[in-house]
């Protein structure tokens, strides 16, 4: 894409956000504001769950990708099969497994919030592990050999040689996964978590203002995808790993 059309695209994105804000301001803005408490709660819940799921998922995914990259005898196949199953089944089914399955298997009571966090972590680690594994596979083999030859330990190689490159090369894909997780978190309300989508739904059921509700939803999810990611992409070039 040329820079001229990229600018055009960004202009249109900003124009859409401005139009949506205008629609909200000219519409039943005061009725929306009456429900600010639950909307704020929902927004915080979505952001918090996404954050927890993403950060924990990143850590677990790094472990998974190492196990699969080094082909540990049994673990690599077992974990590989689990990752493929999670990636091939609908996210709602993963949420159901956790919500119905964990209490059944381990005889514990799960609150919806904990179940939501666990299912997001499961989803995030499965998807991100594939990204990180692709990053690991993209690093030339002689870098590992050189690092070992220079006397680095296994974890030193991972920490100072491999991980920084994987994170830098895969930064766009990792940002994409963050947006994906943010969108997936909108499914969590099926097990009773009041996230932003559910909060807007509750407001709509109470007041019946579907247009304003829809504009709110679009603003929330679209702004995150466009503005946050654009800012993160700019800062990502300057991170020191």
């Amino acid at each position: 894409m040329t820079s001229r059309s990229a600018n055009g695209l960004f202009g249109m994105q900003l124009a859409l956000i401005a139009i949506l804000v205008l629609i909200l301001a000219l519409g039943q803005y005061h009725i929306v504001m009456l429900n600010w408490r639950i909307l704020l709660h929902g927004a915080g819940m979505t952001a918090g769950l996404t954050f927890v799921g993403y950060i924990s998922g990143l850590v677990i995914a790094f472990g998974i990708s190492l196990v699969r990259f080094y082909r540990l005898p049994i673990a690599a196949h077992g974990i590989g099969a689990a990752v493929e199953i999670v990636r091939a089944s609908p996210q709602l089914m993963v949420i159901f497994w956790v919500y119905f399955g964990v209490p059944f298997l381990f005889k514990v009571n799960l609150s919806p919030l904990v179940a939501a966090a666990i299912s997001l972590i499961v989803i995030a680690s499965a998807y991100i592990s594939e990204v990180l594994r692709a990053g690991l596979l993209g690093i030339p083999k002689n870098q590992f050999e050189t690092a070992y030859a220079l006397g680095h330990s296994f974890w030193q190689v991972q920490r100072y040689i491999i991980l920084p490159q994987v994170l830098r090369n895969m930064y766009p894909a990792l940002l994409g996964q963050l947006v994906m997780l943010f969108k997936i978190s909108s499914l969590l309300y099926v097990i009773g978590v009041i996230d932003f989508y559910r909060a807007v739904n509750i407001m709509n059921n109470r007041e019946y203002i579907p247009v304003e509700a829809f504009v709110l939803l679009i603003l929330f999810y679209y702004c995150f995808g466009v503005i946050f990611v654009r800012i993160a992409a700019v800062f990502g070039r300057e991170i020191k790993y």
């Binding site: 249109m12 995150f224 466009v226």
Partner: peptide, 28 residues
């Protein structure tokens, strides 16, 4: 450009909105 940039904008918009919000739009 008058066609391609708006189409890119539409693609980007559709990508950034979850399915559930699209269902909300058409249904509610």
């Amino acid at each position: 450009v008058a066609i391609s940039v708006p189409i890119l904008f539409v693609i980007d918009f559709l990508r950034n909105v979850p399915v559930i919000v699209k269902l909300f739009l058409f249904y509610f």
